[in-house]
Design a protein around this nucleic acid. Structure first.
Length: 521
DNA sequence: AAAAAAT
């Protein structure tokens, strides 16, 4: 099967060939002829199946006849997130190079001016998130009465996000005679009801069963204590995994995205962040930086879990196990795309066991623990290290200071940091981080790339050995780094001797905002 | 125990 057999126009075929594609994916092969014939389509497909091209290519063919009028776009595509909307715009840009079509992106978080100009000029394709679209429509800046094709993408996600009332309102603003293309990864009853109301005699095209995980994704679990030790577990994993190119790291909460992002940067990693409370500029900048390789790590909330198509992501880390099992499937689906191999590593703490069980039930298989090291193999020490704040007065700071390890002697200037880091970085031999003896990546492929001109002080490191800290923080002012460190990690108090006033050892309850500031170090 | 989306 080739694209040529599907009935697409010559202009579109040339653009597809220029992109290097020759064989349509199953959903493209099935959907494209139907869209070209003007039929409604109900596509049940995950992202990563080639769904976007399944509607953009035939839409481009159809749009070759006719012209857009001011304020009256000819086609409308609804997306649940701004990033997905921007991604669809890119797709029109890529496959529409031979067309002179006006494509407008109508999303929140950016100024109205440009968007209004494009709509006034007449948009052939309007790609929108529901809120901003309704805003325009209600102000009379946009008429939906000329819509020929309506695309509702990621409908089940729209449902999750409470967009269904908005979608229904929008559907009532577009002409009854339009063609509707409706895509959803799953079909909950709410969505079935919607398709019955707004699709006319649709062709049903189903490609991948919901909740299946791709065979091209290797999945593994890593047991870890929680707290700062969890960040150390992640750092170790990033440094030690095989075939690392870049990674998306998921957290469950936006504030944890911010904390982890800063922590990784502090440790010298080139990392970006992406969550819905960031301003739109930063969101786009982060995503671009990750796509073009300026950073090789991006810390995300679930805003990035679904649909984002970043080719060639080598690893997905679940820094937090997702609370909702379906999110696991979506998150790990950011890797192993387009036939490439990917690895999904989930860091699991005691508290995650329940959610892990639900995930395994959903995907219908158990996920292996790395090196067979389950939560039960975490030692008492690991667990205690995980919660220094709750220790209260059980130990004095003097007792907390561990005997320097052998490598401290080799790096005397790093001793204080090393003492603090060693317990997490060097778990028991059956512990989570004992996985790989050294980083097999070529130097240029690593997170610390900008510093590659610096001589590497140590040959491939042993698991007990941390990457020399001066490499990680060489770009930082050391005084700043040190002072910001003191807040949350388990560092012995310097300058008070072994005596610590008892009030300092009392457990303290901090307001969340205070905790956040402390954690920012 | 969350995130997202209009201002």
């Amino acid at each position: 099967m080739t694209f040529r057999e599907l009935g697409l126009s010559e202009k579109v075929l040339q653009a597809v060939e220029a992109s290097g594609y020759t064989t349509p994916t199953p959903i493209q092969a099935q959907a494209i002829p139907e869209v070209l014939a003007g039929r409604d389509v109900l596509g049940i497909a995950q992202t990563g199946t080639g769904k976007t091209a399944a509607f953009t290519l035939p839409m481009l063919s159809r749009l070759e006849q006719g012209r857009a009028r001011a304020r009256m776009p000819r086609t409308l595509i609804l997306e649940p997130t701004r990033e997905l909307a921007a991604q669809v715009e890119e797709s029109f840009g890529r496959y529409g190079i031979n067309h002179k079509l006006n494509v407008a992106l109508l999303i929140g978080g950016v100024s109205f001016g440009d968007q209004e100009t494009k709509i006034m000029r007449g948009a052939d394709v309007l790609i929108a998130t529901p809120g901003r679209l309704l805003d325009f429509a209600e102000r009379g800046k946009l008429l939906l009465t000329g819509i020929e094709i309506l695309v509702i993408d990621e409908a089940d996600r729209m449902l999750d996000m409470g967009f269904i009332p908005d979608i229904e309102r929008i559907c009532k603003l577009v002409p009854f005679t339009r063609q509707t293309l409706f895509f959803s990864a799953t079909m909950p009853t709410e969505i079935v009801r919607l398709t019955e109301a707004f699709l006319h005699n649709p062709v049903r095209i189903e490609v991948a069963p919901a909740a299946s995980t791709s065979a091209t994704i290797a999945q593994v679990l890593v047991a870890s204590p929680s707290g700062p030790a969890k960040r150390e577990t992640l750092r170790h994993l990033i440094r030690s995994v095989d075939n690392f190119k870049n990674a998306i790291i998921f957290c469950n909460r936006k504030r944890d995205v911010a904390i982890l992002h800063k922590s990784l940067q502090k440790h010298g990693f080139r990392a970006g962040a992406l969550h819905g409370d960031m301003d739109q500029r930063s969101r786009m900048a982060s995503l671009d930086a990750f796509k073009n390789g300026e950073v090789d790590l991006i810390v995300c909330s679930d805003v990035a879990a679904r649909g984002l198509d970043i080719p060639d992501v080598s690893h997905v880390f679940n820094f937090d196990v997702p609370v909702h099992a379906e999110d696991y499937v979506h998150r790990i689906g950011r890797t192993g795309r387009a036939g490439k191999l990917g690895t999904a590593i989930s860091i699991v703490t005691r508290a995650d066991q329940k959610h892990l069980a639900e995930i395994e039930k959903l995907i219908g298989r158990v996920v292996e623990w790395q090196q067979g090291a389950t939560l039960d193999t975490l030692t008492q020490d690991d667990e205690e290290e995980a919660s220094p704040r709750q220790r209260g007065g059980r130990r004095t700071s003097g007792e907390r200071t561990r005997a320097p390890r052998e490598h401290s002697a080799r790096e005397p200037r790093e001793q204080s940091k090393r003492t603090r880091e060693a317990p997490h970085d060097a778990p028991k031999s059956n512990g989570p981080a004992a996985a790989k003896a050294h980083d097999p990546r070529p130097q240029e492929a690593r997170s610390q790339e900008p510093r590659q001109h610096e001589p590497r002080q140590h040959a491939p490191r042993a698991p007990e050995q941390k990457v020399p800290d001066h490499r990680e923080r060489s770009h930082q002012r050391p005084d700043r780094a040190r002072s910001r460190d003191n807040g949350h990690d388990d560092q012995p108090v310097v300058g008070m001797g072994d005596h610590v006033p008892s009030f300092l050892l009392r457990p303290v309850k901090l307001k969340p905002s205070v905790v956040e500031e402390a954690e920012e170090a």
